[in-house]
Write a protein that binds this DNA or RNA. Sequence first.
RNA 1: GCACUCGUAGCUCAGGUGGAUAGAGCGUUGGCCUCCGAAGCCAAAGGCCACUGGUUCAAGUCCAGUCGAGUGCACCA
Length: 609
Amino acid sequence: MDLKAQLKQAVETAAQQLGMPVDAAIQETPSSKPGDYGTPAAFQMAKAAGRNPAEVAAQLAAAVVLPAGIKKVEAVGPFINFFLDIGDFVRGVVEKPFQMPALSGKVVIEHTSVNPNKELHVGHLRNVVLGDSMARIFRAAGHTVEVQNYIDDTGRQAAESLFAIEHYHRVWDGETKYDQWLGEGYVQLNADPQKPELEAGIMDIMHKLEAGVLRPLVEQTVKAQLATCFRLGARYDLLNWESDVVGSGFLAQAMNILEGSRYTSRPSEGKYAGAFIMDVSEFMPGLEEPNVVLVRSGGTAMYAAKDIGYQFWKFGLFEGMKFKPFMPDPEGREIWTSAPDGQPDDQKRFGHAQEVINVIDSRQDHPQTVVRSALGVAGETGKKERSIHLSYAFVTLEGQTISGRRGVVVSADDAMDEAEKRALAVLSDINPELAKREDAAEIARRIGIGAIRFAMLKAEPTRKIDFRWEQALALNGDTAPYVQYAAVRATNILRRAEEAGLKTDGTGADWESIPKIDLVLAKQVAKLPEVVAQSVRVHSPHVVAQYALDLATSFNAWYNAKDKQGKPATNVLQSEVGLREARLALMVRLRQAFEETAALIGIEIPAAM
RNA sequence: GCACUCGUAGCUCAGGUGGAUAGAGCGUUGGCCUCCGAAGCCAAAGGCCACUGGUUCAAGUCCAGUCGAGUGCACCA
């Protein structure tokens, strides 16, 4: 049990003994107040007992039994505050491994899911980075995670790009990135005044796509798009193709399940006569029109019905899709794909999620709520609650709406190129020696990609992002390089210590000599597991990004601290023997915290900066 | 019209289950490299937390309403 939980219990036990039971909240004290942790529990107790809060607080402070690691307790007005034993606490932080929240269960996270007709643009970056970071965080929290990427291979966009190849007799030079080359045809077609007359040809391609005969071309596009995602650091377990979802009969199976619900019907008269409809008013209150059409009166299915079937499958409500290996990812792990010629999933390896997270633009809020409601209609209320839409606001580019059709975009690859270029330029400017090293390009890559990822997830997903070069690729302030720089500084201290032959594993440490200023840093390090737990709870990585900044800020402030004479107060290597060893051990722990925190949001720490 | 999301410093944003004097970054101004790297640190200035009312010992946080911004509301995909 962690310290806060122990404090909570200690306070509640004491309150119970005083005859004023309470649910005590333990919080960190503001930095200007005495103590490390405190509770306002006396407010509630005093209220219930009709007494003065300060008196109750004094009485409570006298009654509470201090857990190990707490040195003293003090009533401060109506609050009671606890004081940590500094040496004990720092030693505990250094010696105990992180206790990540012990969650379990399989989580399916779907992200990326871009149309296979064009290269990714900067707007797509947000989706990929959000989804990939969630996958990393959920894994760290103990969940089994399966990352799925939906390939809409029967859509109109894919058809138009492929149509453009034959219509304009386009030939790929084998060098241009394939998805980018394909997208050029798409833009050309949509700028073509003759386009309305080409409808028959486009429809022909759509039929061929549905029949699966153009799949090799789409696969080539998907591979080119995945190269961009890999470069960003994203990884996948499974690609699900729309043609396979349709071909596996999910639609019929889902409609079978819904058929039995009291919320669905086939009206014989009125405006929905002959259609199969679902009343979602109980799940989506306040709608003007409570009914959603699933199957048209002509017998054809609506798009929403297909989405519902797919979501049902993710939760394991039925089987039917076949799978085979697709390609290895950069680490050599196999990515699987749905395929008509694949093997049935006898081991129930894919899907069967306890929780499903779909990373989708907030413009899909309404349809996603319908999909979620369908689980309620099917009587699966538990699964409905664990059907999460990670909804994020769209990205604009320098204030302009991004339009793939018109082609006025910056591609994701261009953004990454530019980010790495800027990082290298800064490197050459402020650290010319480093820029000459062999790994300079790798350092610039980590900084550039880190900067982009961080810019995409430091704010809440509901915030609109305007992608501006100056902001997204900034290398100081609230950025990944700020965090990376702090981590590199910690590494440098450790490198120097090793050169001097000093022990960094805590041997020879005098924990009692640690001053209060180091405690602040150690407390920050100790927060990581709580941060992970909160990120999982709110389904957003921005919590982790903000924590990474806090950690770096705490360390930088500590690193630069001066004593009253204006001399450095925390120089590790020049600290007294004993304190020096304790601080070196703390640096090892801090460095590890930086690595782990950054890894949660897909950011790598460079070897040097 | 209805639904959803949002409104915190000049700009961009943080502010777990309501608690102590609302915090960062950018920008502005002024300091800090004979001592582990200045992509850093310290300080100053800048706030009726959109507005009104309510609940509470306690509201940026919860509730209702108003105003403002964005998005979505087809037997389309």
